[in-house]
């Protein structure tokens, strides 16, 4: 970069992109929340309409506008995604720190639990947990959170183990600081990037799982306009030629997931100390 006067450097560009993505996502989310229930009310007069200017995504078999329903479903999915990945990330940090700072037995136990949870396919585990907690939003949240903390917990454990071996931590102890003080002032601040990046990269997983579990009928109740519900309803009418009711909402879901994933990658590029200096 020496001698080269670029108006915008790479970091600034990444920051701008991240902000744009965040704004888009927030806009979709707010829009979904603000849509009144009347907008997604059924009307048999305009049932099974293909996409047009009036109904961007067409209407479903009950005459509900699919565009509005998709947006509303997205905001529901995003709520589930945010809540579940937040819970998962907090569990991960807690468990990771316990494993790295506790006794050897605690460490072995945590690793065993992580292996156990990771060895069972997520979808099956979420279905079981969600079913046990009475389905609905609560069951889904607990199911997704309980299966997605593992890899982040491993990452945090490794990070804490590495940090604890640092000389400045040993110096801090010799200067009379307690273990708790060291944890709060030396260790936790270093975990912030891992926490946020882990959180955001967990988010698309959570959304996809929410959709797939709802699609299979073990998640959200059918009256809720979630993407999974829309897709599972559309299956019934696919053979009648209503391609739009499956393709368009599905496409939007994939788009949102990709957007969030990209944002996570960008965010990592910004705050990860290994790449933040570029």
């Amino acid at each position: 970069m020496k001698g080269q006067h670029r108006f915008i450097n790479r970091r600034t560009k990444v920051v701008i992109w991240t902000v744009i993505l965040a704004i888009v996502l927030i806009f979709v989310y707010m829009f979904g929340i603000l849509i009144p229930d009347e907008a997604v009310a059924g009307s048999f007069l305009n049932a099974k309409l293909p996409p047009s200017w009036e109904h961007f995504f067409g209407t479903d078999a009950l005459g509900r506008d699919l565009f509005m329903r998709t947006l509303k479903g997205l905001s529901v999915s995003m709520t589930v995604g945010i809540a579940a990945s937040l819970i998962g990330a907090v569990i991960a940090v807690f468990v990771g720190i316990v494993a790295a700072t506790g006794s050897q037995y605690a460490d072995a136990f945590v690793n065993w639990i992580i292996d156990l949870v990771m060895s069972v396919p997520h979808t099956i585990l979420i279905i079981l947990i969600s079913f046990a907690f009475g389905r609905g939003l609560k069951g889904l949240l607990i199911g997704i959170a309980a299966t997605h903390w593992c890899s982040l917990a491993r990452l945090i454990r490794g990070e804490v183990l590495q940090l604890r071996a640092e000389q400045y931590v040993a110096v801090s102890r010799k200067l009379g600081k307690s273990g708790g003080w060291v944890l709060m002032h030396h260790l936790l601040p270093h975990l912030v990037p891992q926490f946020f990046v882990g959180l955001i990269l967990m988010f698309p997983h959570a959304i996809l799982h929410e959709a797939s579990i709802s699609f299979l009928g073990f998640g959200l109740p059918p009256e809720q306009p979630a993407i999974g519900i829309i897709l599972s309803e559309s299956m019934r009418y696919l053979s009648t030629g209503m391609w739009w009711s499956a393709v368009l909402p599905g496409l939007v879901l994939v788009m949102i997931v990709l957007l969030v994933d990209r944002m996570g990658e960008y965010l990592r590029a910004i705050i990860d100390p290994y790449s933040a200096q570029q």
């Binding site: 640092e166 000389q167 400045y168 110096v171 010799k174």
Partner: peptide
């Protein structure tokens, strides 16, 4: 507590956060 014997190490860049 504060240790009355303090070590100053060879690599200062490792000894500060």
């Amino acid at each position: 507590g504060v240790c009355p014997v303090q070590l100053i190490c060879q690599h200062p860049e490792k000894a500060v956060n």
